[in-house]
Design a protein around this nucleic acid. Structure first.
Length: 570
RNA sequence: GGCGCGGUAGCUCAGUUGGUUAGAGCGAUCGACUCAUAAUCGAUAGGUCGGGAGUUCAAGUCUCCCCCACGCCA
């Protein structure tokens, strides 16, 4: 039994995430966590909401609520939706937690002690009307280069020229529209990532088995231009973790907070502390401190490609720079983007399906299956309603659902709602067992390697073997001449249902539970060998014919949904 | 503009260190079966592997150039 620490990239607090976000981190992380638990490993699966920063403040203001209240509400909303998708977090924390405050301040203090923090006085734009410093992207004005009137403070979207906010003509705040802006000097702390460049490069260079997507992004940042740059870790904001050096005040940094990119990944650790403080665990250090039992932990992170730099460079810089025995990530599984019907999902334009909407129209297993079996592993992937409909109907309703339906109903009509007797398994059954054994081994190999799409294809192939078997032995024909033989064939079919309930649970936990319940199966442990796994349900064991496990998506629904989610959500 | 990931059957995608007739699922066509959610099973058709040049006995797989899509950065 091994120990696996698993984290999913933490979703930002301001709103409900879309299916592309879901399949990029939380869902595959859940698949892996469920599989590892099923195989008897000890698993700690953590996630959280990322709550600090300007977007959260603005979203709260728009909602007319104090930012702390807004975040608390949105955290609750996201937690409930996560439950709706059966995301099996051991804890779903908050980056605004007291634990993360203390831990982030402790890391900053430690990094300062190690000489890895430097103070920088820089000029930033202050908006008198808004009463705040404005991040570059919240400043707009006329481009001095091309005259475009909506150039942003960091770049002109029209001519792509890189800009400084002070370059803009008639600069204004995009928050209030005010032009009453001024440049003020402000002091910030920078993490000297450049000092850690070689350490990080060596570490990344040792990871030969990581996805190409992960290492190529990391190496690009390490080698591009002058290499890894120092990065500001503080901001002039109200909402965030106050800048402190451990428990002590940080002279000259009063009223400032840590920059969200610095405190967010530290929440991975803090979430484990929250897990303990919530009474759900007893010892977080044996997961995170290599000097306190975490040296045998395998740590795997899941994330979309946009998050790779933070996990391959920034967070490791924090960990390595501390020179404290924190657990470093062992494997980073990164994903490309899921596109929606020929374009991008768009949060601002409401284009595509968002997590709450998805659950409103179909049970989570439909989404889990489709998204995981089309996970954007090697390149960007494409969601279309046509594909979703045909794939879900074929895989879930026809191949799996109908298998359970046909065998249970046949048994009920020819025998009873109990496993029939019959002779021992014969050559056809031995052949089936051999095929299942081969396929299961492939499934397990791909699951352990986090090859999500291939795992889904393997699982589907295992379902198909059941239909092939029934088709070839044809118990409905056998029954006419040799009811006893038919009974044995049905017994095998019913045992396959139970087996499928067990093997499918990482992908489709609800349907798996329904199947297992219908089969009256108390044993849901992962099979050591197929031969014994298909004898678990013995003659006389009662079962019930389940309701339709997966209904089909109709053409009407498909066209209706395609229209509904085409854009502009209110 | 620089860089990155891609461009393989109608669709969604696999193709290990270059090596016999390029694979899967869906869709299509034909057939079998009738227990089942008009489900299932089998068979067949369908690709000059984005374009061009090169290296090699041999290239989807390596090198160079170009085109297209997407993304990141400046």
């Amino acid at each position: 039994m091994a120990r696996h620490l698993i984290t999913s990239a933490i979703p930002y607090i301001n709103g409900i995430k879309h299916l592309g976000n879901l399949v990029g981190s939380q869902l595959p992380a859940d698949l892996f966590a469920r599989y590892m638990r099923a195989r008897g490993n000890e698993v700690l699966f953590l996630c959280a909401t990322d709550e600090h920063g300007t977007p959260a403040e603005l979203a709260a203001a728009k909602a007319g609520k104090p930012v702390a209240d807004y975040c608390a509400e949105m955290h609750h909303v996201q937690a409930e939706i996560a439950k709706g998708f059966n995301l099996s977090f051991d804890h779903f924390g908050r980056s605004s937690s007291p634990q993360n405050h203390a831990l982030t301040q402790a890391f900053a203090g430690r990094l300062a002690d190690m000489g890895l923090i430097r103070e920088v006085v820089e000029e930033q734009v202050y908006s008198n009307a808004d009463g705040r410093f404005l991040p570059d992207r919240y400043i707009e004005g006329t481009c001095p280069n091309c005259g475009f009137d909506s150039a942003r403070g960091d770049q002109c979207d029209n001519c792509t020229k890189q800009l400084d906010p002070t370059d803009l003509i008639d600069a204004r705040s995009t928050i209030s529209g005010s032009t009453d802006l001024e440049v003020r000097e402000t002091k910030h702390l920078y993490l000297r990532q450049s000092e850690l460049k070689d350490d990080i490069a060596t570490w990344i260079g040792s990871k030969h088995d990581w996805p190409l997507l992960t290492t190529s992004i990391a190496k690009k940042w390490l080698t591009d231009g002058d290499g890894l740059q120092d990065r500001g870790i503080t901001r002039d904001l109200d909402w965030g973790i106050p800048v402190k050096k451990g428990a002590d005040d940080w002279p000259g940094m009063e009223g400032k907070v840590f920059y969200v990119w610095f405190d967010a990944p530290i929440e991975y650790i803090a979430s484990a502390q929250e897990w303990v403080d919530a009474g759900k665990g007893t010892d977080w250090e044996r997961w995170w401190r290599t000097d306190k039992g975490a040296d045998d932990v395998t740590y795997t992170q899941f994330m979309g490609k946009d998050n790779v730099p933070f996990h391959t460079l920034s967070f490791p810089a924090t960990i390595l720079g501390s020179q404290e025995p924190w657990k470093l990530v062992d494997y980073i599984k990164s994903f490309n983007y899921l596109n929606y019907d020929g374009g991008q999902f768009s949060t601002s334009r409401g284009r595509g399906v968002f997590m709450d909407q998805a659950l409103d129209i179909l049970p989570s297993d439909y989404w889990r299956w489709w998204l995981l079996s089309h996970a954007p592993e090697s390149s960007d992937a494409e969601f279309t309603w046509e594909n979703f409909q045909t794939d879900v109907n074929k895989d879930l309703a026809d191949v799996l659902g109908n298998f359970v339906s046909r065998i249970t109903k046949f048994c009920r009509s020819k025998f009873s709602e109990a496993v029939p007797e019959g002779p021992d398994y014969g050559p056809a059954e031995d052949a089936l067992i051999a095929d299942l054994t081969t396929k299961l081994a492939e499934y397990e190999t791909h699951m352990a390697a986090m090859e999500v799409r291939k795992s889904a294809a393997d699982l589907r192939a295992i379902w198909v073997l059941g239909n092939e078997y029934l088709q070839s032995v044809a118990p409905w024909t056998t029954f006419k001449t040799d009811p006893d033989q038919a009974a044995m064939q049905v017994r095998m079919g019913l045992n396959l249902c139970r087996l499928y309930g067990v093997l499918s649970s990482p992908f489709i936990p609800d349907a798996s539970a329904e199947i297992l319940a219908a089969m009256g199966a108390s044993d849901a442990t992962w099979p050591d060998d197929i031969a014994s796994a298909v004898t678990v349900l013995q003659a006389g064991h009662a079962f019930t014919v389940p309701e339709i496990t997966f209904r089909k998506i109709t053409d009407d629904e498909r066209t209706q949904w395609a229209e509904k989610f085409a854009g502009t959500r209110d």
